[in-house]
C-alpha cells in the first residue's frame, strides 16, 4: 500500500516535470539561440552554441533596434500612466464608495461598463489627432489612464469598503481638510490595493503593443514591444538577433518576476477576481 503510494507520487512528480517542459523548452530555445551565430541559430536546435556569440549579438541588437531609446520611451509612458492612474482612481473610488448619491451611482455604473468594453480605436484616433496628441508621450499616457481607469477604480472601490468610516469621522472631528483626509489618512491605508493596481497596470502597459502601434508609430517613439515587431520585419532571417531582442525586452519583467513572483501572481489574480 505504502509502496503503491510512493509509486503514484513518483509518477505525479514525473508528470509535473513533463508538463513544465512544454513551457520551459520553448523558453530555453529562445535564450540559447540568442547566443548562437546566425547560421547556427537558423537550425533552431536545442543544442548548445558551437560558438558563444553572446556579447556580439546583444550589442548588435541594442544598437540596431535602438533599445536604449525604446527602453526610455516605454519607461516614460509606463511610469507616467501609473502615477496618474493611481492618484485619480483611488480618489475617485473613495468618493464613490463613501458617498451615496445619484452622481456616484451613475459613475459606478459607467465604470462597470467601462471594464468590459473595448476602446473604439478609430474615433479615439480622430480625437487624439484633433488635440494634437498623436505620437506624443502625453497622448499615450492619457489613453493608458482612461483605458485602465475603470478597472483600477473598481479595484479600489472593493478595497475601500473594508476601511471603516469611523476613521474618516475621527479625522473630521480633528478638523482635517478634505484633501488631507484622503491623502494623509486614507491613501496610506490603501497600500495593498495600490500594490495590486501597480502590478496589474505595469504588466499590461509595459507589454502593450496595440496602443503604441496606433498612437506612437514613429521610429523615435517605439516602445519595446513595438521594436520586436519591426525588428523581426527587417531581420527575419537573423533568428539569433530576433531572439536576443526578445530576451532583452523581457529581461526587466523577468527580473521582477524572479524577485516578486508571489506578489505578481497574487496581484494579477486578485485583480482579475475582484472585477
Amino acid at each position: 500500500m505504502i509502496l503503491l503510494k510512493k509509486w503514484k507520487r513518483y509518477i505525479a512528480e514525473f508528470i509535473a516535470i513533463l508538463i513544465s517542459g512544454f513551457v520551459a523548452i520553448p523558453l530555453y530555445l529562445v535564450v540559447i539561440n540568442s547566443f548562437k551565430t546566425k547560421a547556427d541559430a537558423a537550425e533552431m536546435s536545442l543544442s548548445l552554441p558551437k560558438v558563444w556569440n553572446v556579447l556580439k549579438n546583444y550589442e548588435e541588437v541594442l544598437k540596431a533596434a535602438k533599445i536604449p531609446q525604446a527602453f526610455w520611451n516605454t519607461s516614460v509612458v509606463t511610469v507616467g500612466s501609473i502615477i496618474v492612474l493611481i492618484i485619480l482612481c483611488s480618489l475617485t473610488a473613495f468618493i464613490i464608495q463613501r458617498r451615496n448619491s445619484a452622481t456616484t451611482r451613475i459613475t459606478e455604473m459607467l465604470i462597470i461598463t467601462g471594464i468590459i468594453l473595448p476602446i473604439t480605436v478609430i474615433t479615439t484616433f480622430y480625437l487624439m489627432d484633433s488635440l494634437g496628441l498623436v505620437r506624443t508621450y502625453m497622448g499615450v499616457i492619457l489613453l493608458y489612464v482612461s483605458g485602465n481607469f475603470a478597472f483600477t477604480t473598481y479595484l479600489y472601490i472593493s478595497f475601500i469598503k473594508g476601511i471603516p468610516r469611523e476613521l474618516d469621522e475621527a479625522a473630521m472631528i480633528d478638523g482635517i481638510g478634505r484633501v488631507s483626509l484622503f491623502f494623509k489618512i486614507i491613501f496610506p491605508l490603501l497600500k495593498p490595493a495600490t500594490a495590486t493596481a501597480v502590478i496589474v497596470a505595469f504588466m499590461s502597459i509595459w507589454n502593450d503593443f496595440f496602443t503604441p502601434f496606433y498612437f506612437l508609430n514613429t521610429a523615435s517613439r517605439y516602445t519595446l514591444s513595438v521594436t520586436i515587431y519591426f525588428f523581426m520585419g527587417q531581420h527575419s532571417s537573423d533568428w539569433n538577433l530576433v531572439f536576443a531582442n526578445i530576451v532583452i525586452v523581457s529581461f526587466p519583467v523577468i527580473i521582477l518576476y524572479l524577485f516578486m513572483q508571489r506578489y505578481i501572481i497574487s496581484g494579477l489574480t486578485a485583480g482579475a477576481v475582484k472585477s
Binding site: 507589454n207 503593443f209 514591444s225 520586436i228 526578445i246 523581457s250 519583467v253 523577468i254
Partner: peptide
C-alpha cells in the same frame, strides 16, 4: 508566459 510581451 503570462508576464511576457505578447509580441515577443
Amino acid at each position: 508566459p503570462a508576464i511576457l510581451s505578447t509580441v515577443g
